[in-house]
């Protein structure tokens, strides 16, 4: 990276460290922090959308829709995350390729499953094998986001389902008495008021989601845990300009600080959000706010 880093063995102290911390490998490590933040930024709203959909379905008056919503919540909440993650990458990927294969290669005359092998025609591969590496990586990342969204969406659905029922029934009855349709009642009365009941549960989920990001590695995405382990491992002089002993402890310490700082910032932000949502609500905290202002 830096011009003076051509012969690291001759350096010592801070100069060595500066060169060491700016190798291409470390840059990939720093980049991985961006990957994790990006994953959170996309997954959180996606999971919330899944959760909202699941909760609305579960509340539905139409029995099959309600079964679908409740089934989704029950199944995903009941299966261990890790099993789900391992199952999903392979199963989801194969399902997509299978459908594309059926659509794109009607003339294919070989079986798709040949013994242990899963073989589809080249046109059906996802991504195409001719696609550049970044497409493959984005696809893997996309699968990860989808898997996280489905898993955390089920928990969010359960939280929102409960929150919707926690809104005082008198509010709904009053809305009906004013002549609002069920749809209007839902949009104007139920949804705006449910967030205050949902937030404690959702903020818990957010914390768990932050801590679950190392599962990315299971999905084949090179995340910060992967790089910390790779960089921290003992390096022998034959294969690197920067030989060192087992430094995994220091790298994991850095991760610990990162995660702690990140969850702390989240806690502060969520506490502020809670204060805002509580404003004017018929809850104990809302009442306290009103009295303090008066």
């Amino acid at each position: 990276m830096l011009g003076s880093c051509s012969d690291p063995a001759a350096l010592d102290g801070l100069a060595w460290l500066a060169c060491y911390l700016t190798t291409g490998k470390h840059m990939a490590f720093y980049g991985a922090f961006g990957t994790v933040l990006l994953l959170l930024a996309i997954t959180a709203p996606a999971a919330l959308a899944f959760g909202f959909g699941g909760a609305v379905l579960a509340r539905s008056q139409i029995a099959p829709l309600s079964w679908l919503g409740k089934g989704y919540i029950a199944i995903v909440r009941g299966v261990p995350d890790i099993a789900f993650f391992l199952f999903f990458v392979i199963a989801l990927d194969q399902a997509f390729e299978f459908l594309r294969h059926k659509a794109l290669c009607p003339g294919w005359n070989q079986p798709i499953w040949q013994g242990n092998d899963f073989v589809v025609c080249n046109e059906a591969k996802l991504p195409l094998s001719s696609a550049p590496q970044w497409v493959h990586e984005s696809y893997g990342f996309g699968l990860a986001v989808l898997t996280f969204a489905i898993v955390f969406g089920a928990f969010a659905a359960n939280v929102l389902f409960g929150a919707m029922r926690a809104v005082p029934h008198a509010q709904i009855e009053t809305a009906e008495a004013y002549g609002m349709t069920p749809r209007q009642t839902f949009r104007r009365i139920l949804v705006p008021q449910m967030w205050v009941y949902a937030l404690p549960g959702l903020s818990n989920l957010w914390m768990v989601l932050i801590k679950a990001t190392p599962l990315l590695f299971l999905l084949g995405v090179e995340d910060i845990v992967y790089w910390a382990r790779e960089l921290g491992g003992t390096k022998t002089p034959q294969f690197t300009d920067y030989p060192h002993g087992d430094w995994r402890m220091w790298y994991f310490l850095a991760l610990l600080v990162f995660y702690l700082a990140f969850t702390r910032v989240s806690e502060i932000a969520l506490a502020r959000l809670m204060t805002r949502l509580t404003h004017g609500q018929a809850t104990v905290a809302g009442e306290a706010q009103r009295k303090a202002a008066a």
Binding site: T23, G24, M27, A28, N122, E123, S129, F239, T240, D241
Partner: peptide, 29 residues
Amino acid sequence: SASAALAQDVIRMGTEGAYPPYNFINDAG
């Protein structure tokens, strides 16, 4: 189908990247 197999323009090669000197990740990542 024969030409499809031949025309596979990119062969993707899997490795572990953690087993020097066989395969590893160098300083440049």
